[in-house]
Amino acid sequence: MQKYRGARRNRRKRAPRRRRPRRTFPVFLLFLLAFAATLAFTQGYRPTWLEDVAGGSMSLVGAATAETSGLSETSKRISFAFCHMGGGYNCVVDGDTIWLEGEKIRIADIDTPETHDYRCPAERELGDRATVRLREILEAGTITLKPIDRDTDRYGRKLRIVLVDGKSVGKTLVDEGLARWYEGGRRPWC
């Protein structure tokens, strides 16, 4: 037995209601920006607008103290973090490798113990000490990069002599027993 549905059948069909898209994109975008900013700050990056907030103080971390002209010869006072793996921005990888403003730089005149592919615990311990000391030296003054006869090494790192307040970082690390002068190739530390 069927019920009478005539009144319903004669009604005009309505167009389906469109659903409004959810407003998750701006929330996701805000989360992504916050994550990127947190990552940048932990890698040692300090934006220039912080100088304005601090009243233009030149002692603020990340403030340039001299004009820069690319990576061939740079003079800056910068704060560094540690970045043992992957890329970075103003961070120390190991005793002879740093990231400076997004460029990976190898200190050209020295060799330090490995911290990743070490051959004995003593090499790792000395490499860790060299890494910490390099960060201390770099944060102590104005960094200047001097080019050498080759621009990059076989790993694509920029080869530079690094000076802090005019003193060679390499010489300081060698004098402290944390590095040796680079003579080509890998030599054992054990």
Results as ranks from 00 to 15, higher is better:
Ala122Phe: 09
Glu51Lys: 13
Ala130Thr: 07
Thr172Leu: 08
Asp111Lys: 04
Val93Ala: 06
Leu100Thr: 00
Ser69Val: 13
Val162Glu: 00
Thr38Val: 06
Asp151Asn: 11
Leu159Val: 02
Leu138Val: 11
Ala37Cys: 09
Thr48Gly: 12
Leu138Thr: 03
Val162Gln: 00
Pro121Met: 12
Ala140Glu: 07
Ile110Asn: 01
Arg157Ile: 00
Glu125Arg: 12
Leu100Lys: 01
Tyr45Phe: 04
Glu103Ala: 15
Glu123Gln: 13
Phe35Pro: 02
Ser75Ile: 04
Phe82Trp: 07
Asp111Asn: 15
His84Glu: 15
Val61Phe: 03
Leu33Thr: 02
Val169Ile: 04
Arg154His: 14
Thr74Asp: 03
Thr115Glu: 03
Gly127Gln: 03
Gly44Cys: 05
Cys83Ile: 12
Arg124Ser: 07
Ser79Asp: 12
Ser75Trp: 03
Pro147Gly: 09
Asp165Lys: 10
Asp52Val: 11
Ala63Glu: 02
Ala140Ile: 05
Cys83Arg: 06
Cys83His: 14
Asp151Ala: 12
Gly56Asn: 09
Lys76Trp: 10
Val53Cys: 11
Met85Asn: 14
Asp149Phe: 14
Asp117Met: 02
Ile137Lys: 01
Leu30Arg: 10
Val93Cys: 07
Thr48Pro: 12
Cys91Lys: 05
Thr131Lys: 05
Leu138Cys: 06
Ile137Trp: 01
Ala122Glu: 13
Met85Cys: 13
Gly86Cys: 09
Glu125Gly: 03
Gly141Arg: 00
Asp165Tyr: 05
Ala140Ser: 15
Leu100His: 00
Thr38Ile: 01
Ser57Trp: 12
Asp96Leu: 08
Glu136Leu: 04
Ile105Glu: 03
Gly102Asp: 04
Leu32Asp: 06
Leu163Cys: 02
Trp49Glu: 12
Gly141Ala: 13
Ala66Lys: 12
Phe82Asp: 05
